[in-house]
């Protein structure tokens, strides 16, 4: 049993190192925001300042990019979520030949590098004389985000008890009523999660967006361009804000999920 103990401590040590590795970069980036230096770094420390937040607030291009990102994310949400739901409904309903093929096809955008999704969208729409911009960005991102939505909705659908639908039909509900009154409410939590994921995926996308953005710039693209040209700790300030917001959302989401889990557990007992 001694090797067991060593094993246990070894693995704990490893976990500790791992989480340091995971969080140190983010902490350093956040800390660099407050360094009174022209470049984003913490070495050497030149005293604390909040001026980079001001600099950020003054940055008009940043605000435009943020707005573009929000518009794109909303667009993606509106298009990708219905597509993903339809795919999940389809896959959970049909049986037989061709289903595995269709499933693979629907999964394929997730296994395709983002740059290629962007490039193929760009070329395809060029042949229809549409060039890059917000609309193309929405289309390109939808291509693979719809597949994420599909996976999330499908996971919940697979736990759905289809006799509930038969029960509704046997009580005289039409198929449409059965869908809206029984199936959709059941799917609601998965759809809400899928909306959140779709929004975030869109907001943070870079590789695909880069090819189809045209003259529009999303926030992620803007940050990347800032890192390569004209790098100042204002970028850190932006990063810090984005991290804080995501952390907040992540915690809220997790908290709500647990709340829900607790509720179902207690109601089963």
């Amino acid at each position: 049993m001694k090797s067991e103990t060593i094993m246990r401590w070894g693995i704990r040590f490893y976990i500790g190192i791992f989480f340091i590795y995971l969080f140190i970069p983010l902490i350093i980036m956040g800390a660099a925001t407050f360094n009174n230096s022209r470049f984003p770094t913490i070495t050497p420390w030149k005293g604390a300042t909040l001026k980079w937040f001001d600099a950020l607030a003054q940055d008009g291009a940043m605000w435009t990019a943020l707005w573009t990102s929000l518009v794109v994310a909303m667009g993606v949400l509106l298009v990708a979520v219905p597509i993903g739901i339809c795919c999940a409904l389809f896959l959970s309903t049909v049986q037989g030949r061709g289903k595995t093929f269709l499933y693979s096809l629907m999964m394929s955008p997730l296994l395709t590098p983002g740059v290629i999704v962007g490039i193929s969208t760009l070329i395809f729409w060029k042949s229809l004389s549409v060039s890059g911009g917000i609309m193309l960005t929405v289309i390109a991102q939808t291509t693979f985000i719809a597949a994420y939505v599909m996976l999330m909705v499908l996971a919940r659908l697979q736990r759905f008890d289809r006799t509930l639908e038969n029960a509704a039909l046997s009580l005289g509900a039409s198929q449409w009523q059965t869908f809206t009154r029984v199936l959709l409410p059941y799917l609601k939590p998965a759809i809400i999660s899928a909306c959140a994921i779709a929004f975030l995926q869109s907001f943070e996308n870079y590789n695909t967006t880069l090819f189809v953005k045209g003259y529009d710039t999303t926030l992620t693209v803007y940050i990347a361009s800032k890192v390569r040209t004209g790098l100042t700790p204002a970028v850190n300030a932006l990063g810090l804000i984005m991290i804080s917001v995501t952390v907040l959302i992540a915690i809220l989401y997790e908290w709500k999920r647990r709340q829900e889990a607790k509720r179902t557990v207690s109601s089963v007992q």
């Binding site: 008890d161 509704a168 009580l171 509900a173």
Partner: peptide, 27 residues
């Protein structure tokens, strides 16, 4: 099925879990 004068009680009951008891009955 939804146009027949029958109504069914299922082996696993199939009560709608998200509706209240009254909503179930009134469905």
């Amino acid at each position: 099925a939804n146009k027949r004068p029958t109504s069914m009680i299922f082996q696993n009951l199939a009560l709608f879990p998200l509706m209240t008891v009254a909503e179930n009955i009134e469905f």
